[in-house]
Design a protein around this nucleic acid. Sequence first.
DNA 1: CTGAATCCGATCGGATACTG
DNA 2: CAGTATCCGATCGGATTCAG
Lengths: 116, 116
Amino acid sequence: MGELLDKKVCESKLGAIDDALYAIGGKWKLKIIIALKEGNKRFNELQRALDISARMLSRELKDLELNGFVDRKVYTDTPVVIEYELTDYSNSLSEILEALSSWGIKHREKLIEERS
Amino acid sequence: MGELLDKKVCESKLGAIDDALYAIGGKWKLKIIIALKEGNKRFNELQRALDISARMLSRELKDLELNGFVDRKVYTDTPVVIEYELTDYSNSLSEILEALSSWGIKHREKLIEERS
DNA sequence: CTGAATCCGATCGGATACTG
DNA sequence: CAGTATCCGATCGGATTCAG
């Protein structure tokens, strides 16, 4: 009986993780969000901070904006300034970010240990 | 002064997340691990459970084994049975998995809400 | 400065067929 | 059953160029 329960739990988790990976998976999305947590940034600032090509950054920002993680602010101050800013919704990712970064730190330590 | 601190924190987090994504990023690794949490599985069972091609499953399992998340057990029972099993180390991912799946559920709810 | 357009190689990922 | 090999299209991702 516990097996059936396990299966249900597993399947629902698989579905949920699918949804999550679909929205924030890939190489860049989470990194962009982290970079913007430090403060709003302009296109070129992000590019330099993340070492990402303009082509990919442009795509990813469009996607992040479409999915409600990022706002594109245009300040018409002559010269016009364009900044990217996190939305409130992106704060809902904080648990994931924390879990990932703390695991990443421990994982790196493990790797270094193994080399010796 | 707080700005400099922010920058340091951000950079270290970017590095840690890099490490994490390098190890467990991509479309399949976490899904395979979740499927195996339910219990050990054979190659074909995994394939059906995840709807993944043999080609990709083979690659990903090799990678997961190399990085210490999965063990490949061979039972020489005539006929030989081969099973994949999670290592203890893969349990260190539980926080990440929990965070991802609970966020995924909330995110899906948000999406459904938005369509109405 | 903010992108979009193009080109090109690398990788992803499924389908199919094949081996032990 | 447990993979491997091959083929092929889609996407990723950098470099460069170009426009507003």
